[in-house]
Design a protein around this nucleic acid. Structure first.
Lengths: 349, 349
DNA sequence: GTTTAGCACTCTAAGATTGCGAGTGCTAAC
DNA sequence: GTTAGCACTCGCAATCTTAGAGTGCTAAAC
């Protein structure tokens, strides 16, 4: 059953979705006939809209109300009908140079997320990937704590610092630890985190026969640092801002629903999985309603794009808001922001 | 106008508040007479309650509804009437050993906050003070970044790591930075952060005439680290969990109000100021409604207590929930939790 | 075959009306 | 000081009404 839609029906769907996004009210045949610009009567429009309903593009909340787009209708709208409104020059100028390359990735992510939230009046989010292949270990450092515990400090990439506590079988002196760190730095520094974890440590361990005692210990410390189950070293993270703006939308005024969404935000893992799925695509991607696979988001849409350096995708950024959002405005904002971030990161390399 | 309240009136207020906390419904004179256990009629109760109303302890939402406690009524209730329900042995056993001394302060705070939120079914919060006098600098370390920028890593207390980027006038080699760090460590390590910032650096600078060039530079780097305007080194922080639970309370089902509260949570600074005010008092403190000074919290109460080691207050923890909360249960939970945290911290010293 | 006008029908949202129950305040008696 | 009695007020929920919007169908017009 090929879903062929005539030109007129497409046009009507477009006008209907636009009108609904603007007003939030179901769109009736009379208004649609007027707004469509077509020189046809409401009755004709009724027939066409009845076809759209049969295809599952629109539905009526009740017998005698107008039609509202279904998720499928939104999907068709953003895929084939939407005319994106490019940013004005002024907006681009404001955006340009907004994101400095100073500060940590964390700080950059926060400022980008705030920016997205502010521009779109919805919630902004930026994923900070730590597993990216390009993450390389720059420096490792140990400090003795009391009780056979050691604080390991890692500097990753340019300016991200991570630390974790490991346990060892005896006390070490500062000098011993320094020596261990020196050895590990000479062996590991500059390598990519992924490699360190999966390959280099293994190689070192296998070749350890000829090594002295201290190096053995250094390697087992490093193993603990990189394998520690609770470690957040290698987990992605994301920042979110402007969540409270979502409370302003009527379609999300159902407490239960909203609570579900907020709880999903707190369960970072779930959202991250979702964001991971955006990594595949190129350019701006859109999840409409339950396309995300999460029930709680069934009245929300996400507009995302990935940012990258040298053709390698580093992460995802985007916004989340009600399904009924001004896509034609949000899409270019997300798009351009991703490009700006990519540029800022390339510069700081 | 001394606010003298007879014994009977006090008792009635107590029963009224308890009943309202339980049911959330305005309490009428008949029900109050029945529940009070007094052998008086509803009419008598009406007279007494009218007196309470005159004193501002209770009010009626409208002419012919029962009475509900005002903030002043709640205040009297928690100050003089409340009979606290001690925790059961089982609860204390569960609580005991809940909080390990491993991991960073941050991690401890998160687990405590989660615990408070879980036990009380409201939002939990724990302040992580960084300005505490006992915060002492343990180690400082520099790493060169590109472009005249240096990454400074500070280890504070046992296991808190902070880092910040500073700018310098020329490139430094790793060796130079190592030397500077060595010098600073020998001068600063073990001193309290507050002193480092306000006293020791000053002394060093004043005495710098006899020093060599490298030490001058080391001192000015340290000054940048500790004075940098954007630095979060010395700012307190706090963690909050279970915010979404607040969405479950009817009295907070007003979107606008709730949004205000959530936004206040995001504006950490404001909440921290509020928490600072708790530092003065001993034991459990309670803010009822607008006593906090924040309009947005006028339907909320905070129950807080400070945790301490060796009689020195380290920080604040507590819960936040609707004014109509089960104080007799929440108060001991907060109280005992604070004591447990104090104990856990003392142990880990 | 497509388009249109006409019309009966459906459904919602917003008021208006009503009755009920809860609770008060007052008064007069105990 | 306490109590019973009673008129009165108010909110709430149920019910009804009405107006308006919009549909679906049919039959006629193009």
């Amino acid at each position: 059953m090929a879903e062929e839609i005539g030109d007129r029906a497409q046009h009507l769907l477009k006008v209907l979705v636009e009108s609904y996004i603007r007003s939030g009210q179901p769109v009736g045949s009379r208004a649609l006939a007027r707004d469509s610009g077509l020189d046809v009567s409401a009755a004709t429009v009724r027939n066409a809209v009845a076809d759209l309903e049969e295809l599952g593009m629109v539905s009526s909340p009740h017998t005698s109300a107008g039609r509202i787009p279904t998720n499928k209708g939104y999907r068709m709208f953003v895929d084939s009908l939407l005319t994106v409104k490019p940013l004005t020059d002024r907006e681009i100028i404001t955006l340009n140079g907004q994101f400095g390359a100073d500060g940590s990735n964390q700080e950059l992510a926060i400022s980008v997320s705030d920016y997205l939230a502010g521009m779109t009046e919805m919630a902004g989010m930026v994923m900070i990937p730590r597993t990216a292949k390009r993450s390389s270990l720059r420096h490792i450092e140990f400090m003795p704590l009391s009780d056979h515990r050691i604080l390991a400090i890692l500097v990753i990439n340019e300016k991200d610092v991570q630390n974790t506590v490991i346990k060892v079988d005896r006390q070490y002196t500062t000098a011993e630890l320094q020596q261990a760190a020196n050895f590990l730095n000479s062996e590991l520094a500059g390598h990519e985190l992924f490699d360190v974890r999966h390959r280099i440590l293994k190689e070192l361990r296998e070749a350890k026969d000829g090594m002295e005692q201290m190096m053995h210990q250094a390697i087992s410390m490093a193993e603990q640092v990189f394998e520690q189950p609770g470690t957040k070293l290698l987990n992605d993270d994301f920042v979110l801002s402007g969540q409270t703006r979502l409370m302003g939308f009527e379609e999300l005024s159902n407490m239960e629903k909203l609570r579900g969404i907020f709880e999903a935000f707190n369960e970072k893992q779930e959202i991250l999985q979702l964001l991971d799925r955006c990594l595949d695509g190129d350019g701006v991607q859109i999840f409409i309603g339950d396309e995300s696979g999460y029930d709680v988001l069934d009245e929300c849409s996400m507009v995302t794009s990935c940012y990258q350096v040298d053709d390698e995708v580093l992460g995802i950024l985007g916004v989340i808001g009600p399904t009924r959002m001004a896509y034609e405005r949000v899409i270019p904002i997300v798009d351009v922001t991703a490009k700006m971030v990519s540029a800022a990161l390339a510069q700081s390399k």
